[in-house]
Design a binder for these strands. Sequence first.
DNA 1: TACAATATAATTGTGCACAATTGATTGTCA
DNA 2: TGACAATCAATTGTGCACAATTATATTGTA
Lengths: 146, 146
Amino acid sequence: MQSPPQLRLDRQICFALYNASRAVTLAYAPLLAPLGLTYPQYLVLLVLWEEDGPSVKELGARLELDSGTLTPLLKRMESARLVARRRDAEDERVVRVRLTADGRALRAKAAAVPEAISCKLGTTRGDMARLRQELVDLTRALRDGR
Amino acid sequence: MQSPPQLRLDRQICFALYNASRAVTLAYAPLLAPLGLTYPQYLVLLVLWEEDGPSVKELGARLELDSGTLTPLLKRMESARLVARRRDAEDERVVRVRLTADGRALRAKAAAVPEAISCKLGTTRGDMARLRQELVDLTRALRDGR
DNA sequence: TACAATATAATTGTGCACAATTGATTGTCA
DNA sequence: TGACAATCAATTGTGCACAATTATATTGTA
């Protein structure tokens, strides 16, 4: 018995997305390994380089990750001396995440990463911006329509 | 000090992709949970419903997953009585994965899943097909250019 | 001021991903 | 035939994701 078209793997947008996401993460790995970073850790640094000292909550809002993911990830980054975690004196519930000198210094080395990735992707900047927007819209549609 | 544009989180195609992929997986969860499936397990079934009895290797080629991921996943599916794993008599290195009656029967229930997802996505079929193709191309560019 | 409700991060438990290694089997070729 | 390479799945170890729960601190309110 033949599979109906809707159940065929090669028709699944979800599978294409899942594969593309893993392929991109793999593409980052050799660029980030020399910096001692994983891809999610790199994302955390992107946030911190924009604005240092967010709470775990704020970081999670930016990255759409919860404390169950972030807490152990940040602890590993703390062990690697990239960030420091400290309770907020004003509100002891809050843990603030700050860059160390090492963490700040890493930004210069990371500057070459986006260029290298964009080269691997091999598409024009405009195409990428459009694709990015489509993905953002799709994500929002799923999140809001829940 | 301001982050250069290339390092800003909201410019990263990779981050949009990573988020979209996770959002889609989350969207599947409530549809698959009643069937007792996770999203990767659902992908395995999509392959088996198309062609039953592939080796772990062939399954991995379809899904771009290695035995390190598939072996434990398939063992869980075997515990759930959805598939059976058996060494090939011709070549004892090969393990073949076959649907059980339960696994085959699940296809009828899963038939409603693509429709429900497509509804959540809320875009036209044509747009989805185009986006899917762009993602496939992007994935291939990364895989081949390695 | 008690005390319930809320907010925040951490913890627990499950299930992927993936690199690297291991073990068993098969193929090859001198 | 007998080493040796290649193939395939399983294993080991690390690091996410995420649901559900827990612990602690703060806020709102009767």
